[in-house]
Amino acid sequence: MDFVQLSENFLQALVAGLLTGAVYGLMCVGLSLIFGVMRVINFAQGDFMMLGMYAALYIFANLTGVAAPYLAALLAGPVVFVVGVVVHRLLIARVTGLRSTALDSEGHHAQLMLTLGIALILQNGGLALFGSSPVSIPTPLASSAWELGPMAGDRLSVFVNQGQTIAAAIALVTVGVVVLLLARSRLGKSLRAAADNPVAAIYMGIDVERAHRLAFGLGVAITAVGGGLLASVYPFQPYIGLEYVIVMYAGVVLGGLGSVAGAFLGGLGIGIVQQLSTLVLPNQLQNTAIFVVFLAVILLRPQGLFGRAVRRT
């Protein structure tokens, strides 16, 4: 393989990495929002993403037009938001919030195990509801691409998948909206206050319980939109959440636990690592490459690449 061929492969993988990475970044933002505000590690995040994929699938079935897959992905957000708020109210609120900040490790263990239980129910309940055969949201755009080039005297061109590009653009815009929402809106301010110091937030008249509920709902909804966007690119089944929960945690840890912008960059980085790994590793080991990056990051630099050593949010 000559140099031009090598660089074509590299550029192709890099573009694919950037496009998938943007969607991963969106998913990571959802997870990071939950951790940032509630200090809860949500093992079930991947399974809420799976719910988002199926929600998008069923909404898509009732829509027509070229934009249908993307509209369906966006509409999956509110559906999963409602599910998230209900799950929080019924289950998660009982082991989180102010009551658990007093409990050190044991409170956190209760939260971890509770979300593990929710993950098991969603995965296996999904199997009964949706069946085990892989499905996907078909779009003609997924198989059409723009050609960049030819460059280097006609020998090098890079193909940019149209469907993935649109998905990445929607992800980017959604992240922008979330960042603005957190920075500017009253809701965003109350979320940040609840994250920074829940006790002080209560004294300032902020309903921390409600802030947590909204953060959880928003967090799973954002990840669900990411899932909906992926659904038009890759086939999925009810157990898909497990693969992506590690992808998401890898991204969030890479970006620094709890930082929203860092989470997006971390997800982007994981997308690039995953796609570049295909240049040297067989396809089945893509996820193993992510695990290796994930373990390396938490062992060597647990505050993340973009995080500071000590930070509250």
């Binding site: 289950l91 009982r94 082991v95 209760a110 195990m113 509770l114 593990l116 239980g117 929710i118 993950a119 098991l120 129910i121 995965q123 296996n124 309940g125 999904g126 199997l127 009964a128 085990s132 009810p238």
Partner: peptide, 20 residues
């Protein structure tokens, strides 16, 4: 045959019940 993932659901419910 009607509820293929029921084992996982049993464990999920059990852990949630224990925690709560």
């Amino acid at each position: 045959d009607v509820f293929p993932g029921i084992q996982g659901v049993v464990y999920g419910v059990a852990i949630i019940a224990v925690i709560l």
